[in-house]
Simulated scan of single mutants.
Amino acid sequence: MAKKPVKVKKQLAHKRTLGSVISFERRRTLEGWCFSAPWLIGFLIFTLVPLILSVRISFYITQLTDLYGFEGQSKWVGFENYMDIIQDPSVGEAMVNSFLNALWQVPIIVFFALFVAVLLKQKFPGRVYFRVIFFIPVILAGVIMSYLFNDGVGSISVFGSIVGSASGGFFGTLTQYIGNIMWSSSVEILIFLAALQSVPDILYEVVEIDGATAWESFWHVTLPYISPFVILNCVYALVDSFVKYDNPIMSMMQSMTETGTKYGMASALSWMYMLITLITILIFILLTRRWLR
């Protein structure tokens, strides 16, 4: 008779423990949703809703005052906007220029980012400050950086113009190109720096025992190990090149919306451009799969 209360106490203790575990898991889940809620709300309001509206607008000839109601002068035209984009020779020319810009920008940005990341990995006085300097463009808003590079207005553009006037124009253009590359390679530098720090030191010790030089260690150890990050940075730089403010297609879409009467064509062009970008990235990934370790 004396053992029954002990069993009852054990069962109650087990139930309390199970209940506390469940409540803890529920609390953690609730905390996770609370932390995710601001991003989810922002995604729904500022990304998903505009995407849905953009799809709908692409099938209309829409005026500026009719973007949300689709009343008044808005007119359903089906795929006419898409056909006009395909038949417009200026769109094809802008598309070719976009790919040509990406063709020379992406290798330079990736190479520059890898070179700077290798330097920043070394131990030297003030290394932290140099890392901050190269990461400043990511911290600053894109609008601020675009203003700095704005022709004739931005400080970097003005500085380049002054240098160009004093040197015949070459160094001014070179200054703007260097500033543009530094701005575009900040994220890539950070990714490469994290990749370089993830390479095990034992691999360098092994090749050093075999008598490998620093260049041989980089070529046969570092580069193969960080090859996935090279592909990642190439894709990131490619996408960044396609959506930059000075991209020919982006400039064309902006000029269409400035008139207030071609929102349908701008939306159709944006969706076609996104599809072409996705296909380009997919082809690039398929072609570079064999270089992944």
Rank of each mutant, 00 (worst) to 15 (best):
I136W: 13
S98D: 07
Y60R: 05
F124W: 05
G32W: 12
L103V: 05
G211F: 11
D240V: 07
G260D: 04
G179S: 03
F135D: 00
S36K: 12
G152R: 08
S186T: 08
W33R: 03
L12D: 07
F59I: 01
C34R: 15
T173F: 15
M95Y: 13
R26F: 15
D88N: 05
I202K: 15
L120M: 00
N233V: 11
T257V: 10
A194V: 10
S217F: 03
P38H: 05
S198V: 00
L140K: 09
V235E: 09
I281T: 04
S255Q: 15
D151L: 14
S157C: 00
N101A: 10
V118D: 08
L53F: 09
I249N: 00
L282A: 15
K123E: 14
I226R: 04
G19S: 04
V128Q: 12
S157L: 06
K262G: 06
F70A: 01
F46C: 02
T277K: 09
D210F: 07
I136L: 15
D246P: 03
Q63W: 09
R16M: 06
P248E: 08
I85M: 08
G92R: 09
S217E: 07
A2W: 13
M265H: 06
T65H: 11
L232D: 02
K75G: 01
